[in-house]
Amino acid sequence: MKRAEIITALALLVIAGFVMREAIRLGPGWGEAGPRGGFFPFWLSVVLGLSSLWILFQALRHGSQLARNAFFPPGAIRQVLTVFLPMAGAFALFEVVGFYVTALVYLVFYIRLTGRQSWALTVAVGILFPTVTFLIFERWFLIPLPKGRFGEQLLPF
């Protein structure tokens, strides 16, 4: 928990730094017609910087207390990754083969391998879900979902 606190606070501090640099470039001052473009970002970055420093300081001071609870309870990291990695993988696949093919692959992978459901159910959901979303989004509401680099060639309808 301690390390997580420190990393998060440092990340916020870095964001504050970036914002401040950009705000100064935009003009952090008060022009003739009120605040300029960088005015609010500048002061926001100051507040964010100060509050993250405070959090950092607290984490260092009360470190031993925080260290008692691990950020991930035993075994949790594996559990979280079994959800997170397929999700990230699916998002990456969107770029390549588009939504529909990805949905099929992802659902089959997840339901069968992680969820250990029967093949029949897996295939049924894997085909039904993309079909229904296709009908609702693409056909009825005319919202084209991501096609990826090759999606249009794979599913030409």
């Binding site: 249009e152 060639q153 794979l154 599913l155 030409p156």
Partner: peptide, 10 residues
Amino acid sequence: SAVLVALVLA
């Protein structure tokens, strides 16, 4: 059908 159409498109 997808493969076929991909060919045709190419």
